[in-house]
Design a protein around this nucleic acid. Structure first.
Length: 285
DNA sequence: CCCTATGTTCCCAA
DNA sequence: CTTGGGAACATAGG
């Protein structure tokens, strides 16, 4: 369900309610979400987004070994024992139908609730009917994807360089999370429409000017969608259960057989790599 | 019964 | 190695 703007919305809202708060209790209803009780009693030091994944940072583990032992074992190149302890994060990926909801006081537990993280101030619950969401505890490691955050950095030159030798359809390229983090089906369709580029075009055939159009459209659309708190075309809701507003600004997604606002052609829906792809065949060349 | 779904991963084929 | 197709995961809704 959530793409970059939706996860960014959750990330910003989550900061307001859980930053510097201490986890009192974790309840895992779905055993598939194997989670370590290590997080209980820990304070949340940061909430960040990596593509479509949320990372809840935990205060570092208390050092159990005396520094003297570490120095003996690892030598004096290690300046302090603190560095031996990696920062832990709870990494949550909502996949197709995962939702996060904040509850101030004891309310009904909604259907399909998969876990609850309780704080003194309220509870963070995850709802996921299809159970595709993943939730793991791991070491924090920065870096990873090539264009980490198209919301802030997305240069046409970078894109052109990455895509120069590739023959895959430009839409598949934009949605490949190993290269670019955070773009999913809705926003890929919308940005290619805005840039007037056909989703099936091979990446190597695009001119620098076309990459510039895509980069500009991507930044504008993602920023706007964040300002709208996401797209509630079906079941997306923010942390407080509110709908987003970007569904009112979609130009092609879910507008199958509708009229193109630019050229009055007819919007089509066709399948590309198994995903419904909405586009205007007369103005996306 | 059919189809669809804002995602990712894995296996297999060309 | 690259790319694409399809299935799988599991459930709800039209």
């Amino acid at each position: 369900m959530p793409e970059l703007p939706e996860v960014e919305t959750l990330c910003r809202q989550l900061k307001k309610v859980v930053l510097n708060k201490t986890i009192q209790r974790i309840e895992i209803i779905d055993p598939k979400l194997a989670m370590i009780s290590e997080a209980v009693g820990k304070k949340i030091t940061a909430v960040t987004r990596r593509g479509k994944a949320l990372e809840i940072h935990l205060e570092r583990q208390a050092i159990t070994d005396p520094p003297l032992v570490d120095n003996v074992l690892f030598g004096k190149s290690h300046s302090s024992a603190r560095e031996l302890h990696n920062e832990k994060v709870l990494a949550l990926h909502l996949r197709m139908t995962g939702r996060l909801l904040w509850q101030d006081d004891q309310q009904d537990v909604p259907a399909h609730t998969r876990f609850t993280i309780a704080f003194a101030e309220g509870s963070l619950i995850c709802i996921d009917p299809r159970r595709f969401a993943t939730f793991v505890m791991r070491d924090h490691h920065p870096g990873g994807v090539v264009i980490d955050d198209p919301l802030h950095s997305f240069s046409a030159h970078q894109l052109e360089e990455l895509a120069r030798n590739k023959k895959l359809p430009v839409k598949s390229f934009l949605m490949d999370q190993r290269r670019i983090a955070g773009i999913g089906n809705i926003y890929a369709c919308e940005m290619l429409y805005e840039a007037s580029v056909n989703p099936w075009r091979k990446t190597c055939s695009l001119s620098l000017r076309e990459w510039e159009g895509i980069a500009e459209a991507a930044k504008r659309i993602l920023k706007r969608a964040v300002a709208c708190r996401g797209t509630s075309i079906s079941d997306w809701r923010d942390l407080f259960g509110q709908k987003g507003d970007y569904q009112h600004e979609l130009n092609v997604y879910a507008r199958d057989r509708g009229l193109c606002r630019r050229c009055h052609g007819i919007i089509l829906r066709e399948r590309l790599s198994g995903r419904g792809t909405y586009f205007c065949p007369s103005c996306q060349k």
